[in-house]
Simulated assay, not measured.
Amino acid sequence: MPPTFVRPPALRPGDTVAALSLSSGFVAEVPHRYEAGRRQARAELGWHILPAPNALRGSEYLYRNPQARADDLHWALENPEIHGLLSTLGGDDSVRLLPHLDLNLIRTHPKCMVGFSDTTVTLLQFLRAGVSACYGPSLLTDIAEHGGMHRFVVQGLRQATMQTAGFALSPAPEWTEQHQEWLDPDLQEVRRTFLPSRGWRWLQGEGAVSGHLIGGCLEVLDMLNGTPGWPEPELWRGAILCLETSEDVPPPAQVGYWLRNFAAQGILGSAAGMVLARPRGYSSEMVEELDGWVRRVLWAAGREHLPVLANVDFGHTSPQLTLPLGGQARLDPEAGVFEVLQGAVS
């Protein structure tokens, strides 16, 4: 039987959402961007952003105190005044939270959690606790976007966190990787340059498939692999794998090696489909090489007909979708469809 997940209550305008620094404490170094994120979340989504007790205590304190980061998550879950949870940023340190996390609190106080990148660790603990979660923008990234939130991001967050029905997914009309210095307050209202999008690409696949969404950032999944926080085999079975890479720009061969590990674990063999994000920092030659690695690994795993959709707008790209992990989705290569059948909230 496929796994089932509790769907937390949908967020509504006027709800209070806790800002959590579960990995990096960099938010304390860019107070102007933090305030922009709070202001834009209020204007576009109606959310009141409230920092968790330790969220703004800075990088040094949070690095030395993973228990404090876990305490913030537990505080937000148990606090009846908090309706949702939002990561301030990613990082590279969430794996150190594992000994301190209480999955029972996640299970008994289900709330909508949103984040990406290193927050992959925490989002997968929600799935392990039997609770859906959302792979979407953090407070300091697309929510605090220079000059205001992108319409595509607003729509994606509303669909995934505030809408109980399923919804169709479609490519963003434009995208950017332009770096805009966060430390300079004068640049906060200077919009970045966006380029026209070429859309999504089907690498392979025959026939429509459906399954629950699971996945995250591959570099973070590599850190999590083999720890007590790694999702149990039944959580991968029948899933649509949603995989992305970070600004570290791992070589295509490294992505292939990670996928070989997934094949060896049986994850690829039992998957219903795969969705790959637009890889940040890749040249056209690297994209072509990556495509070859994905097809080669899947062929070796006996999955040469597995539906694979690539270049999708989630993860380390802007603007980004919000994907309901644990939610049911459908891929149809022939019809060119990627849709959510049942989302992450109720």
Rank of each mutant, 00 (worst) to 15 (best):
R96T: 09
R96L: 14
R96K: 15
L97G: 13
L97Q: 13
H100K: 03
L101M: 13
D102S: 05
D102Q: 10
L103Q: 08
L103G: 03
N104V: 01
N104K: 10
N104P: 00
L105G: 03
L105M: 09
I106W: 05
T108N: 09
H109Q: 07
P110M: 07
P110E: 07
P110D: 08
K111A: 08
K111E: 06
C112A: 15
M113L: 14
V114I: 15
V114F: 12
G115C: 12
G115A: 13
F116M: 15
D118Y: 11
T119S: 15
T119L: 14
T119F: 15
T120H: 13
T122S: 11
L123E: 11
L123I: 10
L124H: 13
L124A: 11
Q125W: 08
F126P: 00
F126E: 03
F126D: 04
F126V: 00
L127I: 02
L127A: 08
L127S: 06
R128D: 01
R128V: 00
A129M: 02
A129T: 01
G130S: 03
G130P: 03
V131M: 04
S132C: 13
S132G: 08
C134T: 03
Y135V: 00
Y135A: 03
G136E: 06
P137F: 12
S138Y: 03
S138K: 04
L139R: 01
L139P: 01
L139T: 02
T141Y: 14
T141M: 10
